[in-house]
Structure formats: structure tokens, C-alpha cells
Amino acid sequence: MKKLMIGSLAALFLTASLNASAQVDPEDQIIFRKAGYSFMSWNMGKIKAMAIDESVAWDPAQVQAAANVIAATANSGMGALFGPGTEKSIGDVKTRVKPEFFTDTAGVTKVAIAFNQAANELAEAAATGDQATVAKAFAATGDSCKSCHDKYRMD
């Protein structure tokens, strides 16, 4: 039942994404998606500094805020920013998305669902305030990011 629900949500997400992408020109889609991923990366860095590196004092409220931003961004419909015309750089607006991203629907759906689940689980872990729980969820979220980058992102 859970897989059916996830599959249905993925189909709905893809349909909504395609409809929403028509409202934003390709250049802006690339700009917006890069901004979204940069914002998530910055928040991942804040969590890493506290939960993993311990280079910054543990602050459960800050960790929770950062995790909530990551989950909210992951669930915001970022797929809408991968519309037609965004598979290549446009003028000065560069993209590092591999062409396979736009043809491997099953693979992209799989990594997108995994990332959304990991981001949501990170937010749930952060709500506990427990550093070890956050560290474990952080690692899983990072792994989900890496799986997409390895397959669909040019260096």
C-alpha cells in the first residue's frame, strides 16, 4: 500500500511539475533550481558543522530549523524546474544536469522519492533534538544527494 501511495504521489508530482514548468521560462527554471539546491546545501552544512564535525556548538533549535528548510525545499515541487529547455546551459546561466536526467524517468523518480523521504526523516530526527539520531539521518540524506549527483550531475 505504501509503495502504491508513493508511486501515485510521484506521478502527481511529475504531472504538477510539468504544468508548473510551463509558467517559468527555462533560464529562470535553471536559476531557481540552482538557488534551491544551494540553499539546501548551506543548511546541510550547518547541520554537518553541529552534528558531524562538532566544529559549532550543538544547537537543537538551529538543527531543526535547517532540517525543516531542507525538507520544505525538497517537497516544494523542485521537479517543476527541470522543464523543456533546461537540459542545457542558456547563455551565462549554466547547468550541470546530465542529459540522462531528462530521459531516465524511472531512475529520476527513484532518486527523487528517496531524497524526499530522507529529507523528511532528517526533519523528524531533528525534532528529537538527539545529536546521534540527527547524525544518522544526516548521513542518509547526504547519501541520497550523492546518488543523484553521481548519476545525473556533471562535475
Score class of each variant (00 low, 15 high):
M44A: 07
G45E: 02
I31N: 06
V63I: 13
F82L: 14
N43K: 01
K34R: 12
M78T: 10
K34L: 11
F102H: 06
F39I: 08
P84Q: 15
V56T: 02
V93G: 10
I70A: 08
I47K: 00
K34V: 15
Q64V: 05
K34Q: 15
E54G: 03
T15H: 09
G83A: 10
E54P: 01
G45T: 10
Q29M: 09
S76E: 10
I70V: 07
M40V: 02
K34D: 12
W58K: 09
M78A: 09
K94I: 14
A35R: 09
G79Y: 02
S76Y: 14
A72N: 06
V93N: 03
A35D: 01
K48Y: 13
I47S: 01
I30T: 05
Q29C: 02
P60F: 00
G77W: 09
F13M: 12
A22G: 15
T95K: 07
K34H: 15
N43M: 04
R33T: 14
Q29S: 04
I47T: 06
S41I: 07
Q64C: 06
F13E: 11
D28Y: 11
D25G: 00
G45W: 08
D28N: 15
Q23D: 07
A10Q: 01
A49G: 05
N19E: 08
G83T: 09
D92W: 12
A65M: 05
N75M: 07
A61F: 01
A35F: 08
S76A: 14
A66I: 00
K46W: 01
N68V: 05
A35S: 11
P99S: 02
A65N: 07
K98R: 15
I52G: 07
E100R: 05
A72E: 12
D28H: 04
P84R: 14
T95S: 11
N75Q: 11
T105S: 11
A61Y: 02
F32Q: 13
A106L: 01
A20S: 03
E87Y: 02
L9N: 11
T103Y: 09
G36H: 14
M40Q: 14
G83I: 02
F39Y: 15
A10L: 03
M50V: 00
M44K: 06
S17V: 02
I52F: 04
E54N: 14
A106Q: 04
S17Q: 00
A20R: 04
Y37G: 03
G91E: 09
N43L: 04
P84W: 14
A51W: 00
V24N: 03
G45S: 06
L12E: 02
Q29G: 09
P99I: 01
D92E: 15
K46M: 06
G83S: 13
S89K: 09
L9T: 09
N19Q: 08
R33C: 12
R96S: 10
S21R: 10
K94L: 13
E87F: 01
L81H: 05
L18I: 15
T103D: 13
V69W: 08
M40F: 06
A16N: 14
Q62Y: 01
M78G: 06
M40L: 06
A66C: 01
N19T: 01
G36A: 14
M40Y: 07
A16I: 01
W42E: 13
G85N: 01
A10H: 02
S21G: 03
A57E: 09
G83D: 07
L9Y: 13
E87W: 02
W42C: 04
T103W: 09
S38C: 02
S21C: 06
V93T: 11
F101R: 04
A65Q: 08
E54F: 00
I30A: 02
